[in-house]
Simulated scan of single mutants.
Amino acid sequence: MTIPRRALLSGFLATPLVPLAGAIAFGQEAPVLPLTRACMDGDEPTLSRGAGPFYRPDSPLKHDLYLDAPQAPRITIAGYVFDDRCRPQQQSLVEIWHADDTGEYDQQGFRFRGHQFADAEGRWWFNTVVPALYPGRTLHFHFRVQRPGGEVLTTQLFFPGEPANANDWLFEETLLMTIDQADDGQFGRFDFVV
């Protein structure tokens, strides 16, 4: 028996953040870190990736994108936004856009497009659907992330174990989400450091 995505998201939101800075001896400053996949576990750089030809500005403010295809396989994607000293960045802009469950991007409106601002703990999340493959690309989500007053990071997140990863020239292992199976879809996790 697996757990529903809602329970996984609730657990993510209920777990208190223990920042790396709290683990540093009193009086010491946390080290400056390069952009990393996960602030807490490594020094691999988080690579930027182009916005691609399907980016559209002015996406709506919303968490729930799955309503645009209620029968498609569901996924909840969640994580934190940290700065280069592993401090959570509240009010960071997190924007997502992706193909639908047939591999098409909405060119007229804002299906599968949205943005939000990280909460007081630096957390963000979207409830959406698993995008379909389309020629030349593996499964992926596009993101733009910007902490208040910071530069914009434009990147893409990928699915682990996807056979098409090996043939996608934009694929990068450090941009893999961690995926858990839920009884009603998947739960993906990725922390941005900007």
Rank of each mutant, 00 (worst) to 15 (best):
R111D: 08
F143E: 07
D68A: 14
P73G: 14
A7G: 06
C39R: 01
I77E: 00
K62M: 15
D106I: 08
H115K: 14
A30H: 02
D68T: 04
F187A: 08
Q146L: 10
P60K: 01
P19M: 12
F171R: 13
T15D: 09
T154G: 07
R87T: 08
G185I: 03
D183S: 14
G27F: 04
L9S: 11
D180M: 13
E151C: 05
G149F: 05
G11C: 15
R6N: 13
D41P: 06
P57C: 04
P57N: 07
D41Y: 12
G11W: 12
Y55K: 00
P57T: 04
R37I: 10
V145N: 01
L175R: 13
P31T: 12
R87D: 00
R113Y: 10
P16F: 11
D101W: 04
A7E: 12
D183M: 10
A120F: 06
Q116I: 02
P53Y: 08
P70F: 08
G109Y: 05
N167L: 15
W125K: 00
A25W: 03
A69H: 02
F126T: 00
Q108I: 08
Q186C: 13
A164L: 09
L157D: 03
D43I: 13
C86R: 08
L8A: 12
P19E: 07
L139T: 07
G185C: 05
L35Q: 13
A164I: 07
T2R: 11
V152Y: 02
Q28T: 09
R85E: 03
A164M: 12
L9V: 10
R74Y: 04
P4S: 12
D68E: 06
G122A: 11
F171N: 10
L17E: 05
Q71I: 09
Q71T: 13
P148D: 13
R5Y: 05
P135N: 09
Q108C: 02
A166P: 00
E104G: 12
P88W: 03
I3Q: 12
D168S: 15
L153N: 02
E121Q: 14
P16R: 10
G136Y: 12
W124D: 02
R87I: 05
V94P: 04
T36G: 14
I77R: 01
W124A: 00
P60I: 05
G22T: 06
D184N: 14
D100R: 10
T154K: 07
A164Q: 10
E121D: 15
S10H: 10
D41R: 15
G161W: 12
Q28V: 07
V145M: 06
D101V: 00
L93E: 03
R56D: 06
R147A: 11
V32L: 15
M1T: 06
L157N: 05
D184M: 11
L13R: 09
P160T: 14
S10T: 07
V194C: 05
N167T: 12
R49L: 09
A120S: 11
D100G: 11
C86G: 09
T15Q: 12
T36S: 15
A69T: 03
F112T: 02
F143K: 01
P19F: 03
Q107P: 04
M1K: 07
P45S: 15
V94E: 07
R113N: 02
D180P: 03
G185T: 01
T15L: 14
G22V: 08
Q146E: 13
A30D: 07
